[in-house]
């Protein structure tokens, strides 16, 4: 069996919604509701879902920016709940987060060098020359000229800023990168550049990666394993090849088909959306039964009533649908 770097089991995050003078509990928002998956060493898991499906909150749970309601995070075989303070601190070095908004993630009044130095200082590297050496080395690795060291974030272009963010995640030589839509805010011509960079770095440092994205085209090249999330739950998870060639869940198929593409433009394909018009459900008021039934073309009464369970239809390929 392959060695896993990160495993999460039945992770839940519920926000209580309170109202009124006495903070009466009026509803619960099921933002992340029982998510489990596993990332193997050196591999990339892509977490794909539309905005509001809870994928960003999941990342925040993993890095400890939010407290989880229930569930277990296991990093390199060790349960997070059983870790000592020191071990947790070490963990913070081993897993690094890359944000979507490259400008917002950098302090506006820190020059590049300060931003990159921060993680090293926080983790107690006192030798300034050594810090600078690591920073310059990392900047070269991500394709940034070290002369940018003295620039402020707003003086850089979007692509350069995201490189700074990647560099900041790398200075600690982490084992796991958690990337929250790292390329979706970038210009088209830069997306491919940054994606290539991430793949190169992954190979060089044998990084594992959790790559969050909102569409399936972006993760085609990078992912080994894909997890499809909808309204806080996983609907389908399988290896990348399985998802692209043998997707079973209606929602996955919608995601695969609804993305506008150049090829469809050439072949004059229509929009053939296999989807009922409507919105992604509100996590504070999730539909009964299958979460997707409000928009699913194949849904029947049974889907509205009964909650579907995960079925393994091929080794490693899980689908959560009654129709399979």
């Amino acid at each position: 069996m392959e060695e896993s770097i990160l495993e999460i089991r039945n992770l839940k995050k519920h926000y209580p919604i309170r109202k009124g003078l006495f903070n009466k509990l009026v509803a619960t928002k099921y933002v992340v509701d029982g998510v489990s998956f596993k990332i193997n060493k050196g591999e990339t898991l892509a977490l794909v879902g539309e905005s509001g499906c809870g994928k960003s909150v999941l990342l925040r749970l993993l890095v400890g920016l939010e407290n989880l309601t229930e569930g277990e995070i296991i990093f390199a075989g060790k349960k997070l709940s059983e870790m000592t303070a020191l071990e947790r601190k070490l963990l913070q070095q081993k897993q690094q987060l890359i944000f979507q908004d490259s400008l917002g993630a950098l302090h506006p009044r820190f020059i590049v060098q300060e931003s990159l130095e921060e993680p090293l200082i926080i983790n107690g590297m006192k030798d300034k020359n050594k810090r600078l050496q690591i920073i310059h080395e990392t900047m070269n690795k991500v394709g940034l000229d070290p002369k940018y060291c003295t620039r402020y974030p707003h003086e850089l272009s979007g692509g350069q800023r995201q490189r700074v963010n990647i560099a900041r995640a790398l200075v600690e030589r982490p084992e796991l990168i958690l990337a929250d839509e790292p390329i979706s805010a970038l210009d088209v011509s830069l997306q491919a550049q940054v994606l290539n960079l991430l793949m190169d770095l992954q190979e060089e440092y044998n990084l594992s990666m959790l790559f969050v994205a909102h569409d399936l085209a972006v993760v085609r090249q990078i992912a080994n394993h894909i997890v499809i999330m909808y309204c806080g739950k996983i609907l389908e998870s399988a290896s990348s090849a399985e998802i692209y060639e043998n997707a079973k869940h209606p929602y996955t198929n919608v995601l695969l088909k609804s993305a506008p593409s150049i090829k469809k433009g050439i072949s004059d394909e229509g929009f053939n959306l296999d989807l009922k018009v409507g919105d992604t459900p509100d996590p504070a008021n999730p539909p009964t039964g299958c979460l997707f039934h409000t928009r699913c073309m194949e849904a029947d009464e049974y889907c509205m009533r009964e909650i579907p369970h995960n079925k393994e239809i091929a080794p490693g390929h899980f689908v959560c649908c009654h129709k399979i």
Partner: peptide, 12 residues
């Protein structure tokens, strides 16, 4: 440079 669903899984 547009990431494509239909793309072959090439490395870069």
């Amino acid at each position: 440079s547009v990431p494509l669903l239909e793309a072959r899984k090439t490395k870069r």
